[in-house]
C-alpha cells in the first residue's frame, strides 16, 4: 500500500535525479519514506534517493517494492505546474502507479521487479576530505569547467578546496579557502586530488539546487560522494561517482 501527496517540484527533481543514470529501477516504500538505489549501465555512478515521510504533505505506506520505469514517470510529471502538489498512489490490483496533478492523472504500468538489475551494494570507502559548499558555487564551478574540457578536478588540502579543469591552451581554477566553506574537514597530512567526467557531473549539478548546500567527500584518485538535500526536510539525493584516472603522469 502506498499513497502520498508531495510538492510536484520535489518529486520531479527527485525522479530526474535518478533518471539521469538509470531507466528501470526498484522503488522501495516503508512507513518512514521511499528510497531508490541504482547504478548506471557503465557502473560508473551510483545514485541513492531518499525521501522521508516528513517531506510529504501526506504519506501512508506499508513496506513494499515496485519496478518503475523512472524516465517515463519523470516525463509524465513534467506536465505539472510549478509547485503544484502531486498525488501518488499505488494501484496494486492493476499493477500500476497513478500520478494525479490538479484534474489530470496518469497511470503507469509497473515493471516486473525480478527483471530489474539488482540494487548495488554501497562500497565501503574511506574518503579523507569532507567539504560542504554552497549549491550555487558548486553549479558555477561545474559550468566554468564545461567551458574548458570534459572533465573536472577536485583538489583538497589544508588550505581548502580547489576545483579546476585543464586544457592545453587554457585552464579554469576556482579556489575556496576552508574559512569560506560551510564545513571542511581533512584527515591530518592529507592532500587529495581526483578527476571526474563532466558527462556525469554536469547532469548531477542540474539536480542540485542553488539553495541547498552540496556535501562533497573526496579522496585521492577515488570515487567522490556528492550529496544534497532536495526536499523540505531530510530528503536527499547522493551520488557516488568513479574517477577518471590519468595515465603516464
Amino acid at each position: 500500500m502506498f499513497k502520498a501527496l508531495i510538492n510536484g517540484d520535489v518529486i520531479k527533481n527527485a525522479l530526474m535525479g535518478v533518471s539521469i543514470l538509470s531507466n528501470d529501477v526498484k522503488m522501495n516504500f516503508n512507513d518512514e519514506g521511499i528510497y531508490i538505489k541504482a547504478v548506471d549501465d557503465a557502473n560508473v555512478c551510483m545514485v541513492s534517493l531518499n525521501l522521508k515521510k516528513d517531506d510529504f504533505d501526506y504519506f501512508d505506506a506499508s513496506s513494499s517494492s515496485i519496478g518503475l520505469n523512472i524516465k517515463t514517470a519523470y516525463d509524465l510529471l513534467k506536465d505539472a505546474k510549478k509547485g503544484e502538489p502531486i498525488e501518488i498512489e499505488l494501484l496494486e490490483k492493476d499493477s500500476k502507479i497513478k500520478f494525479s496533478m490538479g484534474n489530470l492523472s496518469y497511470s503507469l504500468v509497473l515493471l516486473n521487479i525480478d527483471a530489474i538489475k539488482k540494487e548495488p551494494k554501497t562500497p565501503k570507502i574511506d574518503l579523507p576530505v569532507e567539504a560542504v559548499i554552497n549549491g550555487e558555487d558548486f553549479k558555477k564551478a561545474v559550468k566554468a569547467a564545461e567551458k574548458i574540457s570534459d572533465y573536472i578536478i577536485f583538489n583538497a588540502d589544508n588550505e581548502g578546496l580547489k576545483i579546476s579543469s585543464k586544457g592545453n591552451m587554457r585552464d579554469m581554477f576556482l579556489s575556496i579557502p576552508k574559512e569560506e566553506l560551510m564545513k571542511y574537514s581533512i584527515k591530518e597530512g592529507n592532500s587529495v586530488r581526483s578527476m571526474f567526467s563532466l558527462e556525469y557531473v554536469s547532469e548531477i549539478a542540474k539536480v542540485f539546487t542553488n539553495q541547498e548546500d552540496v556535501e562533497l567527500h573526496i579522496g585521492n584518485d577515488f570515487p567522490i560522494l556528492m550529496k544534497s538535500n532536495i526536499a523540505k526536510h531530510e530528503g536527499f539525493i547522493e551520488y557516488l561517482l568513479a574517477p577518471r584516472v590519468e595515465e603516464g603522469y
Binding site: V44, N168, R244
Partner: peptide, 19 residues
C-alpha cells in the same frame, strides 16, 4: 583539440573496483 588530447591520457574507472 583539448578534448582529444585529454581522452588519450586518462581512463574512466568503474565503481566495481571499490566494491
Amino acid at each position: 583539440l583539448d578534448e582529444i588530447n585529454l581522452s588519450k591520457t586518462d581512463q574512466q574507472r568503474t565503481l566495481g573496483e571499490w566494491f
